[in-house]
């Protein structure tokens, strides 16, 4: 398919299938304790037949890797997590995550993208799918795989063949007119994260304008404001992912594996 004729991924405004009654209910109020490291006495969420794959995209420097690190902290004791990074020309992001010590290095895979980070997540997704498979082969079944795109521009989106949900990350320092500029990431991502809100006063960004423009562009799709400086585990984004995990588990029951990892 020609890259310029890719149909923008449709985002269902309404969940197409209601969870079957056999699926355990999604309850975020249950506290989780883990007496034995590495053993889940009671899975915090319904296990799915395959991992939920969440793409995290956005312009260079908007804080994608910092968000991934925050989510690693948030889910450290809760989910079987894997991360795939797509750097433009290095393994810098994967190295950052390994150095940050937020995730076992065996759970991180880097994909090299030959100058074309958007191609590797949209038009030619094989290397990323290989990386997802390799993660599962190396560390066993996973609940959640975060696929971080290389820093790109406002037109980059993930293929629905690669991810189940996508988060688009922009930051206030990139200018408060970014939501108004639109593009498939801003308008169609399942979640828009407006990051670095702590910098807004310093760069003269008007969060109310960004909120208004995001609503105009995105309709009913959610937008979250975030400052990882103030919230090192990105609580609101982690909660959104927990919610999506519950829906995913209902669509992909444990006893009917769908596709690889």
């Amino acid at each position: 398919m020609r890259p310029d004729t890719v149909v923008p991924s449709a985002v269902p405004a309404v969940e197409p299938i209601t969870p079957p009654p056999a699926t355990p209910p999604h309850d975020e109020t249950v506290p989780h304790t883990h007496p034995e490291p590495g053993v889940d006495p009671h899975p915090p969420l319904a296990r799915a037949g395959r991992a939920l794959r969440v793409g995290i995209g956005g312009p260079v420097g908007s804080g994608k890797t910092a968000l991934v690190a925050a989510l690693c902290r948030a889910f450290a004791d809760e989910l079987r997590l894997g991360v795939v990074t797509n750097d433009i020309y290095t393994t810098e992001d994967a190295d950052f995550l390994r150095r940050a010590g937020v995730l076992d290095p065996a759970r991180i895979r880097a994909v090299e993208t030959g100058c074309c980070p958007h191609t590797a997540i949209r038009d030619d997704i094989g290397a990323n799918l290989d990386a997802v498979d390799e993660l599962a082969e190396a560390v066993g079944p996973l609940d959640l795989v975060l696929v971080e795109s290389g820093g790109d521009n406002l037109t980059a989106t993930f293929s629905r063949g690669l991810v189940d949900r996508q988060i688009f990350v922009v930051d206030v320092a990139g200018g408060d007119k970014v939501p108004r500029k639109g593009g498939p990431g801003v308008t169609a991502a399942d979640l828009l994260v407006i990051n670095k809100t702590d910098l807004a006063p310093m760069v003269g960004a008007d969060l109310a304008v960004m909120d208004r423009d995001a609503r105009a562009r995105r309709g009913d799709l959610p937008t979250l404001f975030l400052s990882i400086v103030g919230d090192p585990t990105a609580t609101s984004v982690a909660d959104w992912i927990r919610h999506e995990l519950a829906h995913h588990a209902a669509l992909h029951p444990l006893d009917v594996p769908v596709g690889p990892a």
């Binding site: 020609r2 090299e112 993208t113 590797a120 030619d124 290397a127």
Partner: peptide, 12 residues
């Protein structure tokens, strides 16, 4: 070259 078989990431 647009056939999705990963060729874009290699320079030969």
């Amino acid at each position: 070259g647009r056939f999705p078989a990963g060729a874009h990431a290699h320079s030969g």
